[in-house]
Design a protein around this nucleic acid. Sequence first.
DNA 1: TTGTACGCGTTATCAG
DNA 2: CTGATAACGCGTACAA
Lengths: 327, 327
Amino acid sequence: MTVTIKDVAKVANVSYSTVSKALNNSPLVKEATKKKVLKVAKELGYEPNLAAKQLVSKRTEVIGLVWPTIERIVLATLVTNISNAFKQTPYSMILSVDTPETAMETFRKFSVDGIIAFAESDLPLESFANIPVVNYGVYKQGDVSYPTIDANHEKAIELAVDHLHRQGHKHIVYAGLLDTTDPLQIEKVESYRKAMKKFSIENCIHEVDTKGLDWQDGYHAVDKILQSDPIPTAIIGGSYDISGGIVRALQEREISIPEEMSIVSYDNIPQMETMEVPMTCVGVPVNELAKEIVSSIIDLIEEKEEDAWIKKLTPVLTVRESTAFNK
Amino acid sequence: MTVTIKDVAKVANVSYSTVSKALNNSPLVKEATKKKVLKVAKELGYEPNLAAKQLVSKRTEVIGLVWPTIERIVLATLVTNISNAFKQTPYSMILSVDTPETAMETFRKFSVDGIIAFAESDLPLESFANIPVVNYGVYKQGDVSYPTIDANHEKAIELAVDHLHRQGHKHIVYAGLLDTTDPLQIEKVESYRKAMKKFSIENCIHEVDTKGLDWQDGYHAVDKILQSDPIPTAIIGGSYDISGGIVRALQEREISIPEEMSIVSYDNIPQMETMEVPMTCVGVPVNELAKEIVSSIIDLIEEKEEDAWIKKLTPVLTVRESTAFNK
DNA sequence: TTGTACGCGTTATCAG
DNA sequence: CTGATAACGCGTACAA
C-alpha cells in the first residue's frame, strides 16, 4: 500500500492534479496550498513513483555509467565522485560492469536519459538511437565520436616539471609506463620531454619504464632509478599506484623524502593526502572532473547539442610534503 | 518514436492484448499466432517498456547490489560473476557505489524487487519495508539479520592443509592478515590451526602476519618466512593478492615453485590460472558463489520465505602447478 | 482462441 | 489559481 498523489490530495483537500503541480513546484499554485500539500506529502511519507513519471514524461532522469573492465583506484575514485556529483542533481546513476554491448542493452532497457563512458570502453558506435553520451579520457587517433572530457595531461606534467624546476631540481626522472600503445601514457611521457625542453634541462631527460601502472611497478622501478649516474633528485611518478610503490621502496632504503628525493605524482585524488608521505601531485582534482562530467551529460540531455567536442580540463598542482628545495 | 505493442498488433493483424499475451508466453494464444507476433515484434525492434510494465505489475525484475567500499579483486570478480549470472534470468541488476544508506534510497527509488549486499556493508536494518535481502559474507557475532550466503572457510583451509599434508609437507606456514577484527580473517587462521591439529602437525604451526591483504603485503611477508628455521616447504597464502606478492618475491630470490616451495592460495577465482605460476587454490568457485547468490535472492523474491538463514557453500581444491610433493 | 475495456500513478492540457 | 480529464504502455479480467 504505497501512498500516491491521490492519497495526498484527499488528506490535503485538493484535487490530485493540484498536488502534482505543487510537488513539481509549479508557479500555477498558490504558495499556501503548495506549503500545505508539501507538508501532507511529507507526513504521509509520499514517494513519487518513478515508473509512472517516466511513462508520461518519457524521461527517467537516470544516467548509465559504463564501468571499465580494468580496476584502477583512480577510476574507482572517479566513479564514486561522479556518483556523488549526481546527488546535487535530480538525476540518478546506475552502473554496469558488463561489456559495453551488454551495458548498452541494460541501459536501453532502463531507458536511461544519458550515458557516461570511459574512452577505454570502446563503445559500439551504432545502436545508440539518440541517447546522449559523454566520454571520459583520451580518444585514440583523435577520432572524436562523442563529446569527450579529458584532463590536459600535457599541462599537468608541465606543472610538475615547473614546480620541481623552481625548487632547483634538474635531474628529474619520469617513472611511468613507456612501452605501450595507451595514448594516455604516451601523451604523458611526451609532455615530460616537452616540458624539460621548455625549461632548458633537456639534457637531463631521464625516463624509467615501470612496465606497468601498479604499485609493484613503481616499487621495482626504484632500483633502476638509483642505479643511474647522477642519481636524480626528483621523480615524477606516472600514477597514484606507481608513486606509492616508489615511496615504499625509497623508505625501505632509508632515502628520506623530500630531503634526499622529491616526488610529484600524476593524478589528483584525495588519497594522495594520506599516503606514507603526503604527496605533491598534479592533475585535475577528481571531484572537479566528476562535476564537469556530470554537468556535461546533463547539458547534453537538456539541450541536445549533439556536436562532438573535446573539453580539456585544466589541472592544478597540489603541493604537499613530498617535494622540497634541492640543496 | 518507440514501437509499442499496439504497433506490433497492427502489423501482426491481431489485437494488442493478444500481443501482450504472446509476448508473455501465455498459454491462451495459439502457437501459430504466438510465433507470428514474436516474429513481427523482432522485426519491428520492439522493446518492452519497463515503466509501463512495472506500473501495472508492481514488479520491476530489477535487483540492487550494494557495492562494498573496499575494492579487492576477488570482490570485483564476484560482482562481475553475479552480473553474468543474472543474464540467465529475467532479472537485471543495478549497482550502487554509495553508502548503504544512499544505496537503499536509490534502490527504493527504482523499486527494486530485491537487494544483494556484502556483509561489510552494514546495511541499515530498518527502512526495508519488505524488500528481500540476501547477504554475502561472514556476519559479525552471528547476528544473522538477513539470509546469508557464505563460503565454508574452515573447510577450505582444511582442504589446503590436507592437500599439502598428503604431498608430504609438514612445515606449512599460513601467511595472512592476523592482527585484525575482520571475522573472515580470524576464521581463516583459526581454521588453519584446527587443520594442522587434525593432521597432527600442530607442532609445525607457523603463522606470518602480512599486516594487510594486498600484493605488497604478501611480497614483504616472504622475508619473514625465509628467515624462519626450519624454512617451511609450503605456504598457504591468505588471499589472491597476498599469494601474488609471495610468488613474485620468491621468483626474485630464485626459489623455484613448486620444487622448493609449494603454495596454495585462498580464494578460487579464474585469475589463479593465469598467475606467474598457475596457482593451486581452495575456495568456493566464484561463479558458483555467484549462481547461489542469484538464485537465493530470486527464490526469496518469488517465494517470500522471510526467515533469516545461513547457507555455507562447500569449497573445492583446484590443483595447479604451484604445489608438488615434498622431497 | 481473440478482442475490449479498465486501471496502474503521473504529467499536461484545458476549462472553470 | 484550481480541478477535471486525457494520455503514457502494458497486463488482465471479462466478454465475445
